[in-house]
Amino acid sequence: MIVGTQKPFDEVWEMVKDHKKILVFGCNTCVAICHAGGGKEAEILASMIRMKALEEGREMEVKHAAIERHCEPEFFEPVMEEVRTYDLVLSTACGVGVNFLSERIGEIPVYPGINTSFFGAVPEAGVFTELCAGCGNCILHLTGGICPIARCSKTLMNGPCGGTNKGKCEVSQEIDCAWYLIVERMKKLGTLDKLAEIQPPRNWSTARDGGPRRVSLEHIRAYEEREEQKSELAGGKKQ
């Protein structure tokens, strides 16, 4: 899932204070699970803005709403007409949602209500950990299922640096050394010998370094096109 965290309220207020009709727009998938930007958090943020507006003597209409996902067009369809009646949308979806809505909404600004942090998991209630960096070229079969790109502070590919201290990273005692975990895991799996092989310099072009990425599945696109044509034809006959 995508993990987000709430922005400091002062930062949010600076963004919104000059607008008159604001929609705080939540997303009920990933960012709801991490208590950052679901419908509930959108509602709370909307009321905080209303209170602040009252305190500052500013006339402001602040509403909230939420949909299941902000990353596919069909989820927006039932609400878009209503959304377009505001002069600002404060989206508490992840950054994907903010971009996606910005491209579709027309002349209305969409501002980020949260910070989008990482791809992660929920090891225990209220804790979220980064486990994948989305580099576009997975090598987890070589590292015991533990990612050195997401989880080593230096994205080292050939073993630990000299900074490992009692299994922790030199950056912080709160961070596990990924290579410590990799070595221990591969010892258990009996595959430590795999680590003796040198991993050559990576081709980072599959990651963000290659520019914004896009995946296009031609067979799916072709299928969708055929289905569309079929329904158009069927519709034509009826008429």
Binding site: G159, P160, G167, W179, Y180, V183, E184, L195
Partner: peptide, 11 residues
């Protein structure tokens, strides 16, 4: 003498 010590010779 760094952690993980078993791996250091291979490093």
């Amino acid at each position: 003498m760094g952690d993980p010590i078993d791996f250091r010779p291979y490093n």
